[in-house]
């Protein structure tokens, strides 16, 4: 049985850990509040934008910008996956990574190789260590300062890759924030932007299509609208991921604090029992000694 001193030391250590997890919980909660607001506002904007671009894209197939078309000759896909830079956030990273892996597998079954564009140190470390896929690019240690400009930069790079015709498809793999306790790993198609339906449906020309008038020239406008839509997708995926990360960390730290509390309760109980046992033993000694003296 552990000595009184050992138990005492153990209790102090666990209390320290508890302080830490509680503090981290609060930090995560504060971060969550600010990112959650931003995400929810941005989500609305992104949705409106997405609605517009798919609407126009479907009708504007004849305009033929390369970003709306797909390149079936390419034998590779690019997966952009969003993980966190720091750990201690429960199963957050594991979930994204396993989803990414299942994507890689399903593409392999279709005879397509996958390249990775990894955001976040955790994902980078994982994929780098196990060499599961070729990492073409990574952003490490910047999820905290990732802003819209950065998203635009990344998007431009992705667009370049796509224009080069290396990739048949580019997809995003990120964690969508549904509620404090529900984060869903989501796979979203990034490029080509619009479902390739125009080969099957009859071509609808601009003039027929509900008379959508576009000023200035449709092509010019689309050329501006499309990159913007794509940056919005990247930025949104990032915001959702960061929000989920903070929520996951908050939960993980909450659980950790609870476990600390349980352990402390158990240890205190053991401590009290051990102390009582010691006292009883001493009493017994004294009583026995007295009895012996009395003879």
């Amino acid at each position: 049985m552990a000595s009184l001193k050992d138990i005492k030391r153990h209790i102090v250590a666990v209390k320290q850990t508890q302080k830490l997890t509680k503090a981290m919980n609060m930090v995560a909660a504060a971060k969550l509040r600010s990112t959650q607001n931003r995400t929810e506002r941005f989500r609305f904007y992104a949705q409106e934008h997405y609605r517009l671009i798919t609407e126009i894209g479907r009708r504007a197939t004849e305009v033929g910008t390369p970003l709306l078309a797909d390149c079936p000759e390419a034998k590779k896909v690019l997966i952009m996956t969003f993980t966190s830079d720091r750990g201690l956030c429960g199963s957050y990273n594991t979930n994204v990574i396993s989803k990414t892996l299942s994507q890689i597998r399903s593409f392999r079954d279709q005879g397509l190789a996958s390249d990775l564009y990894v955001v976040g140190r955790k994902g980078y470390d994982y994929f780098n260590r196990y060499r599961l896929a070729n990492i073409v690019e990574s952003i490490v240690g910047e999820t905290g300062v990732f802003d819209y400009d950065k998203a635009r930069e990344v998007t431009n790079k992705l667009i370049e890759y796509y224009r080069d015709g290396q990739y048949q498809e580019i997809i995003l793999c990120y964690t969508a924030f549904k509620s404090l306790t529900r984060h869903v790993v989501t796979v979203e198609r990034f490029l080509p932007l619009v479902e390739d339906t125009h080969h099957h449906h009859e071509m609808v020309s601009f003039e027929e299509s509900q008379n959508y008038t576009i000023e200035p020239k449709p092509r010019e406008l689309l050329n501006r609208l499309i990159p913007r839509s794509l940056s919005i997708m990247v930025y949104r995926a990032l915001l959702e991921s960061v929000t989920s990360e903070n929520a996951a960390r908050m939960q993980a730290m909450d659980n950790a604090s609870k476990s600390c509390k349980d352990i402390i309760t158990n240890l205190t109980m053991a401590f009290n029992k051990a102390r009582q046992a010691a006292v009883t033993n001493e009493l017994l000694d004294i009583v026995n000694g007295a009895e012996a003296l009395r003879g």
Binding site: I56, E215, P216
Partner: peptide, 10 residues
């Protein structure tokens, strides 16, 4: 005005 034809511009 309401009933405007569908229209998009920047």
């Amino acid at each position: 005005m309401p009933g405007h034809i569908p229209f998009l511009t920047d």
